[in-house]
Nucleic acid binder design. Structure first.
Lengths: 193, 193
DNA sequence: CAATTTTTGTAATGATCATTACAAAAATAT
DNA sequence: ATATTTTTGTAATGATCATTACAAAAATTG
């Protein structure tokens, strides 16, 4: 018995929810907001995501995690992975104002939910740590190959890079401006040498 | 006619409110939370802060602004202000875990309220820009006196420093650990040379 | 002490919150 | 076609939301 088939594409629904969560954050997003964004009634919504708002947010976070894993895959077949990372940072400056104002949903979650929802906060921290690990591994390899001359511990430099990312996601809201962001990122990356 | 005098100290009340807001953020903090923390009933609370929750949060932000202005004053009579800034960063590493998890209420506000409350977000951005300006001015002076050898534009280095601050306030929640934070801050400051 | 002013505590307000209940609708399988 | 299964829309749930109304309490001033 198959029963009535779903008319909603779960991935697309999570993506719509992700957009709302990204802008307003977990606490300020109401189920009404989510129903409007996804065009789902509460019946379908709770039937699809029995965990309610929290499960939907978790799925949205995991969707960002997938995006990161895709980037990591792309990097594996690149001749100079560290250049891809640098380019990723530099491309940040080219974003439009709205993108600047949104920041990073993962970092947003870490700052907003530490004393509100431990599970979701831990999930977000986990993603950022994965990114940090990728930075560290890439830097270690670039040091071996001589692409990076800074001899500091790769783990510290990786932590430095994720901190650059975290910082940019606040500062870009203070200065959603291409030129200012470009200069800033240039200084940040200059440390790798 | 004087009328019945207030039994609540407004500054102390705002401080209590600030503590709750700092941990849970604007959206996730309920008036019930604020009444519990301040030991005020809704009658007194709305009599004292006619603007309700929003005015109370604004006052809490301004209280942080005052703390910053006090630091700036202290700096003025210091022989080497840039050293005070470096020490401020280095002292971050010594914080206890709970302090690490709280981060910075001003940066928290910028990330959480951009699409929720424009006024409060703008207020927070204003404070961060004031801090950035202080960084820039101090760096410019340190360059003149030769305390800092990095010849980059002081405005860019100031923007770099506020971005370090913003980044640390996320990363310290990933790694609320003295040793890791110490190494990280060391690398960040090494750029000033 | 009486008039006045302000604070305070309690109760009520209507709105919105996340979630559930449930029956009608729409599909499949026999 | 009928039984079965699942989705869907609507309505209702009780809780909590921020805020207001209001009268009693507590102070000052004359």
């Amino acid at each position: 018995m198959r029963g009535r088939p779903t008319t909603y594409d779960s991935d697309a629904v999570v993506l719509k929810a992700q957009e709302v969560f990204w802008e307003k954050g977990y606490s300020a997003t109401s189920l009404q907001d989510l129903q409007t964004a996804t065009q789902m009634g509460s019946g379908s919504l709770y039937n699809t995501f029995r965990g309610g708002k929290k499960e939907l947010f978790s799925k949205a976070l995991q969707q960002r995690r997938e995006a990161f894993l895709a980037f990591k895959q792309e990097m594996k077949q690149h001749p100079a992975p560290i250049e891809l990372i640098k380019d990723f940072f530099r491309s940040l400056a080219e974003a439009d104002e709205h993108t600047h104002m949104k920041g990073c949903i993962v970092a947003n979650t870490v700052t907003a939910l530490a004393f509100v929802d431990n599970d979701l906060e831990a999930e977000a921290v986990g993603i950022l740590k994965d990114v940090e690990r990728m930075f560290t591994d890439t830097i270690r390899e670039a040091q071996r190959s001589g692409t990076i001359t800074n001899p500091a511990d790769a783990a510290v430099l990786g932590r430095y890079l994720i901190t650059c990312w975290n910082g940019l996601n606040v500062t870009r809201r203070m200065h959603p401006n291409k030129e200012k962001m470009k200069e800033l990122i240039g200084i940040q990356l200059s440390i790798l040498a």
